[in-house]
Design a binder for these strands. Structure first.
Lengths: 175, 175
DNA sequence: GACAGTAGCGGACCACGGTCCGTTTCACAA
DNA sequence: TTGTGAAACGGACCGTGGTCCGCTACTGTC
């Protein structure tokens, strides 16, 4: 079923594939797809899961600066960097998972994992800030639809990386 | 027609009103609604237009720090402040206008007005930055669906204002 | 006043995401 | 082997955003 989705997405582009088509391709009823994944976002999340897990692993147990051991500001920079790359590689899927229904992004579990990670680092780098809010603000420029829009406007990955890095450094690098 | 929409939105909540219903209430065919506004986002934009224009006016010709005359960092703070308040007052409409279709936010004219405004101020405050990118990053936390999510999570307007202000100050206040 | 050309309208129509319920299938007991 | 309950399934169905085309009504001409 995930295989069927993967195949169709690769063939025809994520946006052009209906859930009916996926159900048909998987040889299963539409109801089954929905029981399994809840909604379109759920399916995208499932497909992204493995890739995201890998990044989470690198954050939790990998070498610095992404993993533990480096100063918080550096870890934050490394994180947005790595996330941006992941996002860039799977924009369409991210869009599906974040924008399928209203506010989907802020309901899926992985968002809260990233948020928690950023909160901890913000608390370490700038204890005087409202870490919970600032974490949302840091994640905001990583929204999938913004990324897509920037792409079509001609921004390439390196430029976004550079821009976001400079912002993070300004925010968290101790003066 | 705009009146009809306004009325229904007020009565039943923006999300619960279909375009069919608006067309019916306005005593006009659905096709007419679409010819006039393009899509759901267009209708929301039209309803927001007046309110946004007022803010633009204050920015262009009003008193500092929102209007011309104050240092760029202060103008930026005043801007995000004022925008946040506008957003808070009309979240549902903003959501409609930004999330109706994919990437709608980055296609509507007003976004580019705000973007341009921020670009100019960023160039003034921090010429060494990639102003075009950073402007997007500054606007990102002002996304309507994030605002909505924060609300339902218990953040009140003052807290968001404080958080965003501190971020802007860190970014643009000269050390 | 009759007529032709045209701009604008309306609502039937389509595709899609999501729901719902009748039916199948299967594990287990007798 | 057969009977029974429950869980999983499938696809008909619904409401919605968005399209499209036949028709209306209005303008200007003789």
């Amino acid at each position: 079923m995930l295989e069927a989705a993967d195949r169709l997405f690769a063939e025809q582009g994520v946006t052009n594939v209906s859930l009916d088509a996926i159900a048909a391709e998987a040889g299963v009823g539409k109801g089954t797809v929905f029981r399994r994944f809840g909604d379109r976002a759920g399916l995208a999340v499932a497909l992204l899961d493995e890739r995201e897990r890998e990044l989470q692993e690198r954050i939790l147990t990998g070498p610095p600066p992404l993993g533990p051991g480096a100063p918080a500001a550096d870890r934050l920079t490394a994180f947005v960097d790595a996330y941006l790359e992941l996002l860039d590689r799977h924009v369409e899927l991210f869009i599906d998972s974040e924008n399928a229904s209203d506010g989907a992004r802020y309901r899926i579990g992985s968002y809260w994992l990233w948020h928690r990670h950023v909160v901890v680092l913000v608390e370490e780098a700038r204890p005087e800030l409202d870490a919970a809010y600032v974490a949302h603000a840091v994640l905001a420029p990583l929204a999938a639809d913004l990324h897509q829009a920037l792409r079509t406007e001609g921004f390439d990955l390196d430029r976004m990386r550079a821009g976001l890095t400079s912002v993070v450094q300004l925010l968290f690098r101790r003066a």
